[in-house]
């Protein structure tokens, strides 16, 4: 479904991704782990098409098409969904209106019938239960004054509505208490199926107790330095990232005189 090959990307002339390669097939859940500054968020933003990042080398193929040539919205129409680490808050846009506009924009571009306000509301209420979201949040302004957990629930609610083919979850666990984490993971797990792939980006192994991946990749300094099964995450939890990143550099820091 998705093939990332030797991907290089930079922002304001600074290279962040330095030759990243991996492949995701339908039905698979891949975890991408790595320390701060390793390029995790850059990867998620590049996949979603954020224009401030410049791809300087390599390719990304999604469903046989060149993803890098697609605009942000074209990617959304084609089934790519990014759950933001920091969802934006926009006072003045009512959450339910935003959700319906997004839902219908995607339906329209997939040549599906758009839903009117009444039908959409019924669908929205049903999906909101999946992430145990307070219905009052649907009438409020988009993410405005939402707690960290409420924002993340709203992200997963959007994912449930938009039914993506490839979902990229960027640090979905950050800022969540254990109960919220459990609820959100349940919501995500309910959407796992044979057609849908997911890329779960996280700093900590904790999330992967709840969303169990098929593959784990360790990202460091813009490259994948190790890939393995779900056990790799557990290994990282006990050993930290140091044993891997040092190996990858092939050197041991020298004491400075």
């Amino acid at each position: 479904m998705l093939k990332v090959d030797n991907l290089h990307a930079s922002i304001e002339g600074k290279e962040i991704l330095k030759g990243l390669s991996f492949e995701v097939k339908a039905g698979e859940v891949h975890a991408i782990m790595g320390p701060n500054g390793s390029g995790k968020s850059t990867l998620s933003q590049v996949l979603a098409g954020r224009e401030v990042y410049e791809v300087t080398q390599g390719s990304v193929t999604y469903q046989g098409k060149n993803l890098l040539e697609m605009s942000v919205e074209e990617r959304a129409w084609a089934g790519i969904f990014l759950s933001f680490q920091y969802p934006v808050a926009i006072p003045g846009i009512r959450n339910s209106n935003f959700l319906r506009t997004a839902y219908n924009a995607i339906r329209k571009n997939r040549n599906l019938e758009e839903l009117d306000a009444m039908d959409f509301l019924a669908l929205l209420k049903e999906k909101a239960k999946l992430v145990e979201m307070d219905p009052k949040l649907l009438d409020r302004a988009l993410n405005d004054g939402f707690s960290g957990g409420e924002k993340k629930r709203n992200e997963i609610l959007q994912m449930a509505l938009l039914e993506p083919t490839l979902a990229v979850l960027d640090e979905t666990d950050s800022g969540l208490d254990i109960d919220a984490l459990r609820v959100i993971a349940q919501g995500v797990n309910a959407m796992r199926n044979k057609e849908r792939a997911m890329i779960v980006i996280t700093h900590y192994q904790r999330l992967l107790d709840y969303i169990v991946p098929d593959f784990v990749h360790v990202l460091s300094k813009g490259k994948i330095i190790k890939s393995g099964g779900k056990d790799l995450a557990l290994e990282l939890e006990t050993k930290g990232y140091g044993w891997l990143t040092n190996v990858s550099e092939g050197s041991i820091p020298l004491p400075i005189n």
């Binding site: 979603a48 401030v52 959304a76 934006v88 926009i90």
Partner: peptide, 17 residues
């Protein structure tokens, strides 16, 4: 805000919308 535009587009709204 460029980030707000990106957020909305990532949900399927075209640039104009």
């Amino acid at each position: 805000d460029e980030e707000e535009i990106f957020y909305l587009r990532s949900r399927g709204l075209d640039s104009e919308s």
